[in-house]
Computed example of a mutant assay.
Amino acid sequence: MIGSALGISPIEVNDQWLRADRFKMGVVGKHYGQANDLWQIRKYENKHLNKYKKGEEKRPYKTAVIVRELLYGLNLTLYLTFSDSADFDAIKSALSNPKWALSLGREDELIRISSMNEVELKKKEKGLYIFKDTIIPGDVNELGYRPVLEDGVKGNLLQKAPRIVNLPSFFDTKRNSEARIPTKYQKFTFISSLPISLEEDCYYDDFDNQFFFIF
Rank of each mutant, 00 (worst) to 15 (best):
L74I: 09
F131C: 02
T183C: 08
L104N: 07
L18Q: 01
K184R: 13
S4R: 06
N46H: 00
Q210G: 00
P60M: 06
E107L: 11
V148G: 03
A90I: 06
L18Y: 05
Y204G: 04
D206P: 15
W100K: 09
E45F: 09
R112D: 12
L70N: 14
I191E: 00
G7N: 08
N36Q: 15
G29P: 03
Q34T: 06
L104M: 09
K124P: 01
D201F: 12
N46G: 14
S177L: 04
I196F: 05
N75D: 08
I2T: 00
N50M: 14
I111D: 02
N176C: 00
L128C: 13
T189A: 04
D139M: 01
N75S: 08
K30T: 13
L194S: 08
A90E: 13
P137E: 06
Q210N: 08
I130T: 15
E200Q: 13
T183H: 09
N75M: 05
T81R: 07
E200R: 14
M25R: 11
L110M: 10
E12L: 09
Y32D: 13
L157R: 10
S197K: 15
L49Y: 12
L194E: 09
I8R: 05
D208V: 06
V148A: 07
I111M: 08
L78Y: 12
L80I: 10
W39Y: 10
M116S: 12
Y44Q: 04
G3N: 05
K62V: 04
Y145L: 00
E150M: 13
T189L: 00
E107G: 03
S169Y: 01
V67A: 00
A90W: 00
P182S: 04
L74Q: 07
K47V: 11
E69N: 13
L6Q: 01
W39S: 03
S103Y: 03
E142V: 10
R175T: 10
K124R: 13
G127H: 06
M1I: 09
T134S: 10
I111K: 03
D15V: 03
E109L: 04
G152H: 07
L194V: 05
D208A: 11
K132R: 15
G55K: 10
G155L: 10
N209V: 00
L18T: 07
Y185I: 01
V165A: 02
I214K: 02
G105R: 06
E56G: 08
S103L: 03
S114Q: 12
Y32F: 12
S197V: 14
Y44A: 08
Y185S: 00
M1Q: 04
L198G: 02
M25H: 13
L78N: 08
L121W: 02
G138D: 05
A86E: 14
V165K: 12
P168D: 01
L38I: 14
E12R: 14
E200W: 06
V140D: 01
P60K: 02
F88D: 09
L80M: 12
V153Q: 11
G144F: 02
A5C: 07
